[in-house]
Design a protein around this nucleic acid. Structure first.
Length: 588
DNA sequence: ATCGTCTGTCATTAG
DNA sequence: ATCTAATGACAGACG
């Protein structure tokens, strides 16, 4: 069906690129991508199909090949001349259409089966398996995320596409003109060159041959150039700006004392002040330990930063896919993971200025083309991993990261609303794991903000104002930049706040424990002192009675306790005082 | 289905 | 008056 319409569409390279993006993101556009692209993209489609129906296709190809060979043999054996291609060609053309989706083949051959054609048939049937293996990393959306680090394959898609509208084209141009996207431009140029090379070969020569040619190989090489040094520098700079996590604010200064209350001699009870010394030692030591632990905990986040370094642009430029495990999903941490992502080349590749917004801020994007919403959100996930590596650095310092896992769960709803959303549910899962572009990053892309979110958030006020003054931004863009900066700052502040809160909670818990211990110790001491006091009173009473009983008056009679009492002065002198007199003295 | 946790965001306040 | 950090509160995602 769709193939019939192809000639009418005449899609431009940009359109094809968009379609390609959609195709990769959605895994399936509902209609074969070949419907839109019958030149360079055919290979990808073919590969795609091949994966889905690999074995079945292989068998079919073998059959087709046999048919083609038989046809060729007939030509040579029976006529010894070139047989009119009408019959063989149609057959071969149909075969190609079914297998390779290559329309050029049919167009090119209209006369007779030449040696080249036979070669094409052979190449078409046999080589298919190999391209599937070599090409997938770049062409197949189903390729593991790690391969996404090399975005170049997507670039070619942006160049020519009749489907795109003028505004969209302009948006593309603007996006590509962005400093951040310079690498993208380079890639595009490379891809254009490649296309120029490929197309001629496909049209003039044979599309099938192009598949076997090293055409796919160039992509990897191009990828290595995706990130110019200046771009990498930009990244580094952004990382440098990342805030280092604040260590625990808590400081428990408690005397270090390990002594415990020990029963004192009876006599010592008379001089309690001598033993009154606070022993919060154990508590203090614990407190210090706790503080150190807290410090360690607080300093732990930086570990992510370290990891981030491993994802430095260097790996990027090398084009080596990083293992997923390398990128912590969590955006947590003080680092602004998201920002690094923004700066990543991969993202810039995808930047088309169109996408959907899941949150209430979607209205901000009114200015942006709405048609591409789903495309935008889906495209970025592929790039995310590469970004995530660097982004995790931020979660990194406040280079969060990592961040980065499902940072924007809200994206899904938006995608659902997107008209171009792919019908496949498996994409949803992929989105969850890969779609980690922050909403602000998406918004920035949509409004074509010429700054990275990282810069917007982390640049000092002066630098930020200077940067803003260098660009003419619309009201919407200015508002978005301000919001991005505000949210980014607040995000970090919230992370710090929570971190402090946790530290405070831990510190208070330790303090509570120490206070409980001290209370218990004091209660125990009180009990002991009370016991000692009772014992002292008892002994004093005994001594009193003993001394009083030894006293005798002039007649040798003991004094009556009712009439006399013993009293002592400060210097230790003891007086026998009559009860009556005593009361009188007191009165006096 | 529910609950607890984590995270981002907004609104408010203090410095 | 303005900006920024801090923080409470809320909502969504996730296990």
């Amino acid at each position: 069906m769709m193939e019939i319409e192809l000639p009418k569409m005449h899609p431009s390279q940009q359109d094809m690129d968009l379609i390609d993006i959609l195709w990769r993101q959605d895994v399936d556009l509902g209609a074969g991508r070949e419907v839109f692209d019958f030149s360079y993209r055919q290979k990808e489609v073919e590969l795609r199909r091949q994966r889905e129906k690999e074995e079945e296709k292989q068998q079919q190809r073998l059959r087709e090949q046999e048919k083609a060979l038989l046809a060729q043999l007939q030509l040579d054996e029976e006529t010894g001349e070139f047989v009119p291609r009408s019959a063989p060609l149609t057959q071969a053309g149909s075969t190609n259409a079914e297998i390779a989706q290559n329309g050029a083949f049919a167009e090119q051959d209209g006369d007779a089966m030449s040696f080249d054609e036979c070669m094409q048939l052979l190449a078409e049937t046999f080589p298919l398996d190999e391209p599937a293996e070599s090409a997938p990393p770049c062409l197949d959306a189903s390729v593991p995320p790690s391969t996404d680090l090399m975005m170049p394959p997507d670039i070619p898609a942006f160049t020519q596409n009749p489907l795109m509208q003028g505004s969209l084209d302009q948006a593309w141009m603007e996006l590509l003109s962005l400093p951040e996207l310079q690498c993208l431009n380079m890639q595009m140029q490379e891809s254009l060159d490649m296309n120029g090379f490929m197309k001629p070969s496909a049209e003039a020569q044979d599309p099938n041959y192009s598949q076997y040619l090293p055409g796919m190989d160039p992509l990897p090489s191009v990828q290595t150039e995706v990130c110019p040094p200046e771009y990498i520098n930009t990244y580094d700079g952004s990382f440098n700006t990342m805030v280092s996590p604040n260590l625990s604010q808590m400081s428990l200064n408690v005397p270090d004392v390990g002594a415990e209350f020990r029963p004192e001699e009876f006599n010592e009870l008379f001089y309690p002040e001598m033993e009154v010394k606070e022993d919060s030692g154990p508590v203090a030591s614990d407190g210090e330990n706790m503080v150190s632990q807290l410090a360690e905990i607080s300093s732990d986040p930086p570990v992510n930063h370290m990891d981030l370094h491993s994802f430095s642009p260097g790996s990027f430029s090398s084009g080596k896919p990083e293992p997923m495990s390398e990128f912590p999903d969590s955006d947590s941490g003080l680092s602004l993971d998201a920002s690094p992502h923004m700066s990543s080349p991969g993202k810039s590749l995808n930047g088309d200025g169109s996408f959907g917004f899941s949150d209430s801020d979607s209205e901000e994007m009114d200015g942006s083309p709405g048609g591409m919403e789903s495309d935008y959100t889906e495209i970025f996930p592929l790039v995310y991993l590469s970004d995530g590596a660097q982004g995790s650095l931020s979660e990194k310092p406040p280079g969060e990261a990592q961040e980065m896992k499902a940072k924007n769960p809200k994206i899904e709803p938006a995608e659902a609303s997107g008209h171009s959303k792919p019908p496949f549910t498996k994409d949803k899962q992929k989105k969850r794991s890969e779609a980690r572009l922050s909403r602000d990053e998406q918004r920035a892309k949509a409004l074509q903000i010429p700054f990275t979110v990282d810069k917007i958030i982390n640049l000092p006020v002066d630098d930020f104002n200077e940067m803003m003054s260098k660009h003419q931004l619309s009201e919407a863009q200015l508002a978005l930049v301000r919001d991005i900066r505000r949210r980014g700052k607040n995000k970090v502040a919230a992370q710090n706040c929570r971190k402090r809160k946790l530290e405070n909670i831990v510190g208070l818990e330790y303090e509570l424990d120490s206070l409980k211990e001290e209370k218990e110790r004091l209660m125990k001491e009180k009990s002991q002192r009370s016991t000692s006091l009772r014992e002292m009173k008892k002994q004093l009473s005994t001594l009193y009675q003993e001394v009083f009983g030894m006293l005798r008056d002039e007649q040798g009679k003991p004094f009556s306790p009712n009439e006399y009492s013993l009293q002592h002065t400060a210097d230790g002198t003891v007086f026998l005082v009559p009860r009556l007199k005593k009361t009188l003295v007191k009165n006096n």
